[in-house]
Design a protein around this nucleic acid. Structure first.
Lengths: 123, 123
DNA sequence: AAATTGTTCGCATTCACCTAGAACAACCTA
DNA sequence: TAGGTTGTTCTAGGTGAATGCGAACAATTT
């Protein structure tokens, strides 16, 4: 399980950690039943506070993706993986179809996405 | 032009206002050449500070959707592609939000779009 | 000229996020 | 049972973005 973090990002660190796990879940890197590394370990590895990691874990628990239990750690629960990625790809194809319908070239689509990316998180 | 805002949302007020305009532009409620209500007026109407409204307007200007000029106000760009561009920006932001929720970095989003572009026509 | 409207200052306040340390409770293993 | 592991809870403080507030300013319209 590869956990990366960008301290200068506008996205909260806890959310970034949660997003990493979601991603690993989405692409099959992490499977149901698998155990996430202990929060203290992740914290030391990322140079981040334990509470921050746990906040990310608790967020995943609230989303129903993992279970948290004292002494046992964080265990992946549901199988949300392929569905999320499928949603994402569908959204991407829809975006592209709409762009082509407006006569935009591929480069135009990419630069549009770049613009929206630079604008920051919408929610 | 209907502008609504949810003060308790985590989404910044300025961004909420910008999103309202994008939506109105996307669904044809607001047309190119049309003038947005003055910032002071919107501020009073929503119970929000003028600067907050202007921050939303300036964001739209940065996205190329409107023009801002002193004394004249905020005008939707007469460019024919403005409306489509608003739709695309909305779709792109939705895609990006979903991608971030799955833990994808900016570069990942771009390469995803590149992949989908290379995949050819959607239908 | 006067009113309108966006622009740019500076400053204060609020709040989410992060860090830090400590004690505690549930769980596992030897 | 004893001890280590791991999440939970508590208090406390620091930082930065978002927002509010007031004022002066510049371009445009009427």
């Amino acid at each position: 399980m590869l956990l990366r973090v960008q301290p200068d990002s506008r996205v909260p660190l806890g959310e970034q950690i949660a997003a990493c796990v979601r991603g690993a879940l989405a692409d099959g890197t992490t499977l149901p039943g698998e155990r996430l590394p202990p929060a203290r370990e992740v914290a030391a590895s990322l140079g981040v506070n334990v509470h921050t990691v746990l906040r990310g874990y608790q967020r995943l628990r609230d989303e129903g993706l993992i279970e948290l239990r004292r002494g046992r750690g964080a265990v992946v629960r549901a199988d949300e993986s392929t569905r999320g990625r499928a949603r994402l790809l569908t959204a991407a194809r829809s975006l592209i179809a709409e762009a082509r319908g407006l006569g935009l070239a591929d480069e135009d689509v990419l630069s549009l996405v770049r613009t929206a990316l630079a604008a920051g998180p919408a929610e």
